[in-house]
């Protein structure tokens, strides 16, 4: 198995490590690679769009040609996990902040994203989440200037909510979470994604 982490800006190395740990846990032979350009996505079984600044990641994805490549791969069924900024980039719609900054959106998921939904860094928080499909044990949600989802439609399924806001959504092979699973030792979310990539 080969998982490509979009490595333009943000918490890339953390996702590489978390993916490797999840592979080990599941006994999957595979590797996680740092993707800087469209060619490096050849033959990947899954793609991760990490957290960082969504405006920066979106612009760099367009500049590098990764934007179109990722879109095509997703339409052909390659699973994608987007965390934090990655959630925004996966969305079909965004709030007024996202519109005003001309944020490039891949437009793959039937979700509407809100940037900085919980406030600034001062309002960043950790909490215990219950996420459908990850078992009874709560999942430590690390929210850093996090986005949220205001609305889902079509086939998008809500996996977790926090204080009434949607913070995890799955739609077929696409998985978007508002928090940072790569900043905790818990690999269950990455394991869930790798199982999606095995199909």
């Amino acid at each position: 198995m080969k998982i490509g982490i979009i490595g333009l800006q943000g918490a890339v190395s953390e996702h590489l490590e978390a993916t490797k740990r999840a592979m080990q846990k599941l006994g999957i032979e595979g590797k996680a690679i740092w993707v800087g350009g469209p060619m490096e996505l050849d033959g990947v079984d899954g793609i991760i769009i990490p957290g960082g600044e969504s405006t920066t990641i979106g612009k760099l994805m367009q500049m590098t040609g990764l934007f179109e490549r990722v879109k095509r791969l997703a339409k052909n069924g390659t699973p994608i996990l987007g965390t934090c900024a990655g959630l925004i980039v996966l969305a079909k719609r965004g709030d007024e902040q996202i519109i005003r900054t001309k944020q490039p959106l891949l437009g793959l998921m039937d979700i509407s994203a809100i940037r900085n939904a919980f406030g600034r860094q001062r309002e960043s928080f950790e909490t215990e989440l219950e996420i459908s499909g990850l078992g009874k044990e709560p999942f430590r949600g690390v929210f850093i200037r996090a986005p949220a989802v205001s609305e889902v439609w079509g086939d998008a399924q809500v996996l977790a909510k926090f204080q009434g806001k949607i913070v995890a959504v799955q739609q077929g092979g696409l998985l978007a979470v508002a928090f940072h699973p790569e900043l905790t030792p818990d690999t269950r979310l990455h394991e869930h994604f790798l199982r999606m990539c095995q199909r």
Binding site: G7, L8, Q9, G10, A11, V12, S13, E14, G51, G52, E53, T56, C84, A85, Q121, S124, F125, E126, V142, I144, R145, H180, L183, T184
Partner: peptide
Amino acid sequence: TERLKRGFAKMQKGG
């Protein structure tokens, strides 16, 4: 928390 503070800095990497 330390994780939120250092995590914020991690989101700036490559920038």
